[in-house]
């Protein structure tokens, strides 16, 4: 046992310096497709045609991306000419007015996660938040097992038929005031999981979502950024807003 203690004592600090410094470690984020200018309408149409989920919309000689629908298949990055990719993580968006007081909110926020049918990779990425590299506890975010103690409901997944009741019960069990953060493309647009008998509508349509974090799966930095955005401790990046807004 003491050997573990000593090991822990002499292990270097791995935690990200975010938000004081941006995280730049290679591989921490997969990046994302961003609006791209092409030289001809055909090229734009070609790039848009690569997208299996219709997240890329061709303009005249440019193409724009609705990140909510992007599933990170990277087909648009591997075609010729490719869509531009940007290696950032500041793509979370706020959907409702910020009502946390005081602003910025530096006290702790407790989070209850509800998985409504997401893949295990999303859960794995959220788990990373409490692990050494990201350590969200340092920034005052904590996971709680009961909604009674939760301020924030973090929802992932396309909201399956069987999870509707559980999600509603969880949301109702939370005390006021409460906030909702939807994580992952499937919670925002259903992603590859179609609407129908298994899913009557996404999280975005079922709960008053405060902050949305697209991604498939969204990397931990993006989720962390989303949480900081909810607390009003970082500003929203203008580039996060697509010029063509399209709701599925």
């Amino acid at each position: 046992m003491p050997s573990w203690f000593i090991k822990g004592l002499f292990s270097p600090v791995k935690t990200t310096r975010f938000p004081k410094q941006p995280e730049t470690a290679p591989g921490a984020v997969p990046g994302r497709p961003v609006a791209t200018d092409f030289t001809s309408p055909e090229q734009a149409a070609h790039a848009a045609a690569q997208c299996p989920t219709g997240a890329i919309r061709a303009g005249h000689i440019s193409a724009d991306v609705n990140l909510n629908q992007c599933i990170y298949c990277q087909r648009c990055a591997r075609t010729e000419p490719p869509m531009a990719w940007k290696a950032d993580y500041t793509w979370a968006r706020r959907l409702r007015a910020n009502n946390l007081t005081p602003q910025p909110f530096r006290k702790s926020l407790h989070i209850r996660i509800v998985d409504t049918g997401s893949c295990d990779a999303v859960i794995q990425e959220i788990k990373q938040l409490s692990k050494p590299y990201y350590n969200m506890h340092k920034l005052g975010f904590f996971i709680t097992p009961t909604p009674r103690h939760a301020d924030v409901l973090m929802v992932t997944g396309p909201l399956t038929h069987h999870m509707r009741l559980a999600l509603k019960k969880t949301y109702d069990a939370m005390p006021e005031p409460k906030w909702v953060i939807a994580v992952g493309g499937c919670a925002l647009s259903g992603c590859v999981f179609s609407r129908g008998f298994t899913s009557a509508g996404t999280v975005l349509e079922s709960l008053p979502v405060d902050v949305e974090v697209p991604g498939c799966p969204p990397p931990p930095m993006a989720i962390l950024y989303g949480l900081m955005l909810l607390a009003g401790r970082v500003g929203e990046m203008p580039s996060a807003k697509p010029t063509i807004m399209e709701k599925a």
């Binding site: 009961t146 009674r148 009741l165 559980a166 019960k169 109702d172």
Partner: peptide, 9 residues
């Protein structure tokens, strides 16, 4: 409110 029972019906 209702007792919290893990979202059980």
């Amino acid at each position: 409110g209702e007792q919290w029972a893990g979202g059980l019906r």
